[in-house]
Each structure stands twice: as C-alpha cells, then as structure tokens.
C-alpha cells in the first residue's frame, strides 16, 4: 500500500505537464479584419480627429516569421504608419504592443507615437504576434521575438538603418524590445523606450506569492528584462505609472531602469497612473514632446 502510494506520487509528478505559460498571452481570436479607427471594442482612450492618419499613410500587410524552432514560417499581420517609400530616410518607432487582443486595441497608441514631434512625424511599425488578431499560429515567447524581428527585417529591406530605429515596448512588449535590443538580429535599435515594463516572469510570481518561489515551479517562461537590460548600452527612456496595479513600478520598472548600464537614461514616473492609462494621464502633449525630445537627443 505504501509503495503504491509512493509510485502514484512519483508517477503523477513525472508525467504531469501543467504549465501556465500560455496565461501570459491574452489574444482575441475571431476577428475578420482590422478596423483601426472603426474599432468599437474596449479601449482605454480614443484620440480626437486631429490625430487622424491619412489612409495613404496606413499599410496593412503580412510577413513571414520563423522562430528558430519552426520548420516553416508563420504568417503574421503588420501595420505600418507612414510613407513606405521614405523609410530609407525616416526615423521609425517599432511599437511592440502588450498582451491583449490585437492591433486594433493598440491603434490609438500607435497613432499617438506617429504624431510625436509633429503630425505624422515618425513612422510606426506594429505587428500582431502569432495568435493575435489575424496572425496565424499560437503565441509563444520565441514567437514574440521572431515576429518583431520579422518586422525589423521588413523595415531593413525597405531601407531603414540602425541609427533611425527606435524600439518601443509596452508591458509584455518590453520582452521583445529588450531581447532584440540586447541581442540584435536584423537591425540594432539606436534607442529604447519602455512603458510599464516587466522585470521578469520571476518577479511576477514572487510578487504574487510573497515568498521567493523559483519561477520554474509554475512557468517555463524565460522573460527576464531586468537581466537583458544589463547588456543594453543604447539610451533608455522609461515611463511607468506610480499606481500600476498590474506591474508594480518598484518591483518591475524600477529594477529594469536601475540595471541599465548605458551612458544615458531618463525616468518618467507618472503619478496616480495605472497600467493602461499612461498616455492620457501623462498628457498627450507631454507624452509626445518628451518622446520626441528623447529620440532627437
């Protein structure tokens, strides 16, 4: 009886495979098209008509993305805001969105970035990671990196050079932003902007459990921006709400900021601001101006 009990315990342990990695991703399936300004789903803010982007400056297209573990590429969707014919001279912000829904959900944020420093001043590139929106496949950590790099590869092919690439990561998007700035593939970003970034999967687990549990008890995710940032020498701009109820400003963002070893960095802690509210709480004008100043520095 005792042996049987031990066999059952060991057997369950060895054969069990519950991992909660997929819970990081929260894509919305089932959309049939990107609606952009016509999107009427949940949004945290909607910009007024002065932020409208002319239709000739909005391009929606597909890319082939292949992670190292894949035998065949995955088709993902991308949006470029700007004139695709002037990418060889423009400065472009690679916007890596968060873990929710799809690009429609982040469209207002991408538009705001395009207007930093003036109307349609910057090109903005955004992709739906695999499994998000119309992109094929299932979300994965490797997939995040491959999908953003597929966009960078497209930009490179369109004439973008390292010195005019600014990487922007919001929330979960801080993972591909830090990874591809720390370990560049197609292009090496000139600057890095992080809005409400993760420190690491480990910090998320320890914040919730109080005790310092090893992350491997729950997840195989290796997201570790706090370590990746140590290899990044490019200038860093960090923005974080002081009342972020999702990713604690002190245990997440501040750790990433403190670990940056580059020659220049600037921090913007926005009072009374939660995870999703930073642009409107900061003030659109302040947000746009400060990003523009940082990019031009």
């Amino acid at each position: 009886m005792r042996k049987l009990f031990i066999y059952i315990i060991v057997g369950i342990s060895l054969t069990s495979c519950f991992r909660l990695d997929d819970n990081l991703f929260d894509p919305e399936a089932g959309i049939t098209e990107y609606k952009l300004d016509g999107y009427d789903g949940e949004q945290h803010f909607v910009l007024d008509a002065s932020y409208a982007i002319p239709s000739n400056l909005v391009s929606i297209f597909t890319l082939n993305s292949q992670s190292p573990s894949e035998a065949t590429p995955t088709t993902i969707y991308a949006i470029y805001i700007g004139d695709v014919n002037t990418i060889s001279t423009d400065t472009v912000i690679m916007y890596c969105h968060g873990n929710s829904k799809h690009m429609d959900y982040y469209w207002q944020r991408a538009k705001l970035l395009a207007h930093c420093g003036g109307k349609n001043n910057y090109g903005v590139m955004m992709v739906d990671y695999r499994g998000y929106g119309l992109s094929e496949g299932e979300p994965s950590e490797d997939g995040l990196y491959a999908d953003v790099d597929a966009a960078l590869n497209w930009l490179k092919g369109s004439g973008l050079t390292d010195d005019r690439l600014v990487m922007y990561g919001y929330s979960m998007g801080s993972a591909p932003s830090c990874e591809l700035t720390s370990k560049p593939r197609s292009l090496t970003p000139a600057k890095l902007i992080l809005e409400a970034p993760f420190a690491s999967a480990a910090v998320m687990i320890q914040d919730a459990s109080v005790l310092g549990l090893p992350p491997s008890f729950i997840t195989n995710l290796k997201i570790d921006n706090a370590e990746e940032i140590k290899n990044i020498s490019q200038p860093l701009m960090w923005m974080h709400g002081t009342e972020d109820l999702f990713l604690n400003v002190n245990t997440h963002g501040q750790v990433v900021y403190d670990n940056h070893q580059g020659v220049y960095k600037e921090a913007h802690k926005i009072n009374a601001t939660d995870h999703d509210d930073l642009p409107p709480m900061y003030g659109y004008q302040n947000y746009r101006n400060n990003i523009d100043v940082f990019i031009k520095k």
Binding site: L20, N23, L24, D26, G98
Partner: peptide, 20 residues
C-alpha cells in the same frame, strides 16, 4: 485591463498553493 488580469491570474494565483 481586467481581462488581462484574469488571463494572468491563472499564472499567478497558483503560486499561493505553495505557501498556503
């Protein structure tokens, strides 16, 4: 954001089982 929280809750609430 709540939906994000619910999505991630699965990842994190489980951590309490180790201590409770």
């Amino acid at each position: 954001m709540k939906k994000i929280i619910y999505g991630l809750a699965g990842l994190l609430i489980i951590t309490q089982l180790f201590s409770c």
